[in-house]
C-alpha cells in the first residue's frame, strides 16, 4: 500500500482523538469563557480510570465507560468547585485561567502520589491490521474511528436538536441574556462541562489505547496539541474545532512521518503561534484589524 495513504490512515486516528479532546475543550470554553488549563487532566484521569477497570478484568466497553465517567466527574468538580465560583464572583477570564493551571498542578501531582510518576503500560490486544477502504487499521483503531464518529454525531444531535442544546447555544452566545430569558445558565454550564468531561475522559482512554502508555503528565502534553486544534478552529466554535482537530491531527502525523516525530510538539506550536498571530479568531474568520479591535 502507498506510504502516504498509510500515514493518512494513522493521521485520521490521531485526528479523531484530537478532535474529541478539542471539542470537549471548546465546549468548556463556550459556556464559561474560561480556557481550562486543567483540561488535559480530564484525559489523564480518564486514562487512569480505564486502566483500573482493565486491571480488574474489565473489557474495552467497560473501560471506555469508566474513562468517560471519571472525566465527567472531574470536569463537573472543576466547574462547580472552581470555575463557576470564580465566574460568578466576576473574577475575569485570565485569573480563572491561572487558577485552572493551579488545578492542573494539583491533579497531576495527586496522580503522581497515588500511581507514581512513571509511565504505565496500557496494553490492549490490537488485533491484526485489516483493510478498511483505502486504509490499514487495527481493531483498536477501528474502534477509535467508529466511536469518534458516533460521539460526534451524537454531540451534533444534542447541540442542534435538543432543548438542552438550544440553551447551551444561548448561554454560549450571551450568558446574561440567556439568564434573563429564563435559562438556568449555571445549570446549563455545569451540564455542558459534564458532557465535555465525558467526551474528554473517553478521549483520554483512546489516547492511552493508541499510544500504549500513559503517565500523570500525558494529558497535559496532549492538551498542548489540543489547544492548537481548538484555537485554529476558533475558540468556542464546535464545527471549526472539529475541522481544526482533523487538520492538525493529520498535519502532525505527516510531519512526524516525513520530518521528525521528536519535534511533533514544537511543530504543533509553530502552527498554533502562526494561527494566533495571523488569525487570532481562528482560521475561518478574517479581516484587517487594529490591536484594539
Amino acid at each position: 500500500m502507498h506510504e502516504a495513504l498509510l500515514t493518512l490512515g494513522f493521521g485520521l486516528v490521531a485526528a479523531a482523538i484530537l478532535s474529541l479532546s478539542a471539542l470537549a475543550f471548546t465546549l468548556e470554553y463556550s459556556v464559561t469563557n474560561v480556557a481550562n488549563l486543567s483540561h488535559g487532566e480530564i484525559l489523564t484521569v480518564g486514562a487512569y480510570c480505564a486502566y483500573l477497570v482493565q486491571q480488574h478484568g474489565g473489557g474495552v466497553i467497560l473501560s471506555g465507560l469508566a474513562a468517560a465517567a471519571g472525566g465527567g466527574l472531574l470536569a463537573l468538580a472543576v466547574h462547580n468547585g472552581v470555575v463557576d465560583r470564580f465566574v460568578r464572583r466576576g473574577i475575569g477570564g485570565l485569573p480563572t485561567f491561572i487558577a485552572t493551571l493551579g488545578v492542573s498542578l494539583v491533579i497531576q501531582n495527586v496522580l503522581v502520589i497515588i500511581f507514581g510518576a512513571s509511565n504505565l503500560g496500557y496494553a490492549v490486544p490490537q488485533g491484526a491490521p485489516r483493510t478498511v477502504g483505502p486504509f490499514l487499521w487495527t481493531d483498536t483503531e477501528i474502534q477509535i474511528m467508529v466511536s469518534t464518529v458516533v460521539i460526534t454525531a451524537l454531540l451534533y444531535v444534542i447541540i442542534v436538536h435538543t432543548r438542552f442544546g438550544k440553551s447551551l447555544r444561548a448561554v454560549s452566545q450571551n450568558r446574561s441574556l440567556a439568564r434573563v430569558s429564563g435559562i438556568n445558565a449555571n445549570r446549563v454550564a455545569a451540564l455542558t462541562w459534564l458532557l465535555a468531561g465525558l467526551i474528554g475522559g473517553y478521549a483520554g482512554f483512546i489516547l492511552a489505547e493508541s499510544v500504549g502508555t500513559f503517565s500523570p503528565y500525558s494529558g497535559f502534553s496532549f492538551f498542548l496539541i489540543t489547544l492548537t486544534a481548538a484555537v485554529a478552529g476558533g475558540l468556542g466554535r464546535a464545527v471549526g474545532t472539529l475541522v481544526g482537530g482533523v487538520i492538525v491531527g493529520i498535519a502532525l502525523e505527516f510531519f512526524g512521518g516525513y520530518v521528525s516525530a521528536s519535534y511533533n510538539l514544537a511543530f504543533a506550536f509553530a502552527i498554533l503561534s502562526l494561527v494566533i498571530l495571523v488569525r487570532p479568531r481562528g482560521l475561518f474568520v478574517g479581516g484587517r484589524r487594529s490591536v484594539f479591535e
Binding site: 472552581v82 465560583r85 470564580f86 464572583r89 473574577i91 485569573p95 480563572t96 491561572i98 487558577a99 493551571l101 493551579g102 488545578v103 492542573s104 498542578l105 494539583v106 497531576q108 501531582n109 495527586v110 503522581v112 502520589i113 507514581g116 510518576a117
Partner: peptide, 24 residues
C-alpha cells in the same frame, strides 16, 4: 522519593487557587 516534590506542587496549586479567589 517523588512524594515531597509532588506534595509541594499540590500545595502550590491549592495556594494559587485560593489566593486568586480570596486575596488577589
Amino acid at each position: 522519593p517523588s512524594f515531597a516534590p509532588a506534595l509541594r506542587l499540590i500545595i502550590t496549586g491549592v495556594v494559587l487557587v485560593l489566593f486568586i479567589r480570596f486575596r488577589p
